[in-house]
Design a protein around this nucleic acid. Structure first.
Lengths: 342, 342
DNA sequence: CTGTTAGCGCTTTCAT
DNA sequence: ATGAAAGCGCTAACAG
């Protein structure tokens, strides 16, 4: 039932003024050492706790930062958030989570809500590229709240981002399939209006070209990031005149679905069909038929995003630093694309 | 570069007082309809946004709730958080995330930090049972901030919790192994000072007893929730005079490790050795040797915790409602414990 | 129906 | 080195 102790309470007790208490508590240089100690002691004895809300109102800074992700229950986003939280914790920032469920309307709402809540910064992965919510982004920028994109970015002048080199990710995964001797490599792509998927696709295409393999449009299937979508893709691909002998999937889940469907059809992986995925979800490593996948170092991405935010905050708003950090993807080669016969 | 618009700005413009503006904005009944409309219009035209920090200071409510979990990058906790966020979003609450990394000291810190930040409630899964941080919990209770435990709970009078029936979970998993004809069933347990692990163990034990199987202490191995720990457990168990022919593991990761090690030793699963895990991590379903596991319905657990919080908040603090919600575990029977031969 | 006033808890000029 | 007073933006009790 402890009542709230304010600086007034401790001022009264010491027959001094609240201003002095405030100064003592904030290590203001022009305060007598003896009073400072006295204040500190009584503050401790009275179990005083600073009221952050008052501080926030006064200063206009909430010490909260907002993180917007499509959903939190995916290993990738959860790991990014973990990285963000770990990096920001020592700096006294709290992390507020918002999910869009891939819904741009929800994304706008979240942006407005976070601004309303006076967050000191927003770190986000965009859910879709549409122009509906441009005003929401404009709103953030007008308020001069640092905005940082991670993974799924959007081109906005003056906005920093932390991404991986998706082009390279697509390239190295495809190259590895080529190295295994695969000739007809299909690609399961996500929504190509999102840069990450566009770039993975472009990397895939470039790898083919660089290795003298003709690009075949029919081999590119746009599909969701789900096991089911992967199965369906196989259904379609195997109907083609020349069915593919490998798949590079932008999604581990779709890659898994593909593998399941291929097994169903008694097609031998990896000897007759190689598969590579993207994201390095935990299960890719756990499977008996472990899945080759491109790692995006989500923890590092989160940490880096947080660091970029920390650099940005406190900077006088006259200097707009646009920082584009691009992390290197790392290919984890596993059974699904490691042929025993050479 | 939009400056902050306050109710004073819009009051000045209309030659009325801020109080009237406030009332109009808050749909106070005793306000002339015409003025209300006028205020609303000009507010909109001036792009007025309520300052939540001022509101928070005034009301003492931040509209934030804190969630403390050991770590966020596990499917279980991420899903719980998802559930919490979804349930609380329509009520205007923001979710602040804290991770303890299973460190009780960090847990205390998080509790203090959240209270400092004036959260309106704390939902948490405890990281370990130790009495070091009792004062942190006491602090929360003294401040009359609703505290709700989920999954990993702690016995504190007046504190509500949402858990699953771990005893039953352990029981039904073990029973299923017995039904498969397993006679010597081992158990990989977590830290039994945590109730969840204690109860899963007790359920396991009871299932043995109820089915006339003698409980053997040597079959119980305390291990971490990791693949490595599962492998090590097999090393130990197979050295026993009478090695077991099944494992019920409190962790899916350890179950996976066990399976990997058994395969390594060419022991046939499930015909010669059955395995069941706990948590229903996504990978258990994805494996070719899919793993039987107990589902904890994390999404529902999160939603329920949020609902319990909503019931609790706003209640006059004279009435302390202690609510214990216990969800039913659900066994997902998969290949790892489904013998083909009967 | 609306204005006046005070106050949430803290920081920060301006005096002294 | 300390006090007095104003103000961050909002709400609510009290008047009228």
């Amino acid at each position: 039932m402890s009542e709230k102790i304010t600086i007034y309470d401790i001022a009264k007790k010491l027959n001094i003024t609240a201003a002095t208490v405030s100064r003592a508590l904030n290590n203001n240089p022009k305060i007598k050492e003896s009073t400072r100690e006295l204040v500190l002691e009584t503050a401790a004895s009275m179990n005083y706790k600073q009221n952050k809300l008052a501080l926030a109102l006064k200063s206009g800074r909430s010490n909260n930062i907002g993180v917007i992700v499509p959903r939190i229950d995916s290993n990738f986003f959860a790991s990014v958030i973990r990285g963000i939280e770990e990096e920001l914790y020592p700096h006294g920032y709290q992390v507020i989570i918002c999910q869009t469920h891939e819904n741009p309307k929800r994304e706008s709402e979240n942006l407005y809500t976070l601004i309303d809540a006076q967050v000191d910064g927003i770190l986000m992965s965009v859910s879709g590229v549409n122009n509906e919510n441009d005003s929401a982004f404009r709103n953030v920028l007008e308020k001069n709240v640092p905005l940082i994109f991670f993974d799924r970015s959007k081109h906005i002048e003056g906005v920093s981002s932390v991404t991986i080199n998706d082009f390279k990710g697509g390239y190295i995964a495809t190259k590895q399939l080529i190295n295994q001797g695969c000739k007809n490599i299909a690609h399961l792509s996500g929504d190509q209006s999102l840069e990450i998927f566009k770039n993975r696709f472009l990397g895939y295409k470039q790898a083919l070209i660089d290795n003298g393999i003709e690009f075949n449009e029919k081999y590119v299937i746009q599909s969701k990031s789900s096991v089911e979508a992967g199965k369906e893709a196989i259904d379609i691909l195997l109907e083609l005149e020349t069915p593919p002998d490998a798949i590079f999937s932008s999604s581990d889940f779709a890659a898994l679905g593909a593998i399941q469907e291929l097994k169903e059809r008694n097609i031998n992986i990896p000897d007759d069909f190689c598969v590579a995925g993207f994201s390095n979800e935990p299960f890719t490593k756990f499977m008996e038929m472990s899945i080759t996948s491109v790692d995006q170092s989500p923890l590092e991405m989160g940490r880096m995003s947080a660091r970029v935010f920390l650099e940005q905050v406190d900077k006088t708003d006259t200097i707009k630093i646009e920082k584009k950090v691009v992390l290197a993807p790392e290919l984890h080669i596993r059974k699904s694309s490691t042929r025993t016969t050479s």
